[in-house]
Amino acid sequence: MSDIEGRIADTMLAKLRQRDPSLGPDDLTRPIADLDLDSLDLVELHQQLERELQVKGDLRETAGFAFLDDFSTYFVKLASGE
């Protein structure tokens, strides 16, 4: 896992644990629909990842993600300048 991927995972896990402190890294692969996250949580996660990585994403893209892994892939690309 790269440094960027690690920071993204830490940010996502922190978000998950706001809702359920018992969740762990394995839960990052679960579908978003199975997690106790509402649509505003996903906006907050988007903003937190932007701040963590100092990039600007497009909420219209991330709003449709079905898995947290999709956030990771998307923000790794942004942070890498791809």
């Binding site: 649509s39 996903l42 906006v43 988007h46 909420l59 709003a63």
Partner: peptide
């Protein structure tokens, strides 16, 4: 449009 409004308002 809840998500967009939330993001833009903040």
């Amino acid at each position: 449009d809840g998500m967009q409004v939330y993001d833009r308002a903040v």
